[in-house]
């Protein structure tokens, strides 16, 4: 397993625990595969420098 795959799996395991999921190893392996796909696609936009002004602000009207 490469270092980045290892750290991705570690992240998934930690985040699952934090969120209160309890899965067996087969289920965790499926989720790691799915999260890897999300991570791969996220990488295409994460390093794009974009201005703060382009961030949509959720509108809250008390």
């Amino acid at each position: 397993m490469t270092e980045s795959a290892d750290s991705l799996e570690s992240y998934v395991r930690a985040a699952l625990t934090l969120q209160g999921y309890r899965f067996d190893e087969t289920q965790i392996a499926e989720i790691v595969v799915q999260f890897s796909r999300l991570e791969l696609i996220a990488q295409t936009i994460l390093h794009q420098p974009l201005p703060f002004a382009s961030q949509a602000a959720p509108v809250f009207r008390p």
Binding site: L16, Q19, I31, A42, L50, Q55
Partner: peptide, 21 residues
């Protein structure tokens, strides 16, 4: 498994995605 993976997405990714949008 896809839905669970979605719940693990870091907030900073979502904010960046909104900027891209």
């Amino acid at each position: 498994a896809r839905l669970v993976a979605g719940t693990l997405i870091p907030a900073s990714w979502v904010v960046q995605a909104q900027r891209v949008r």
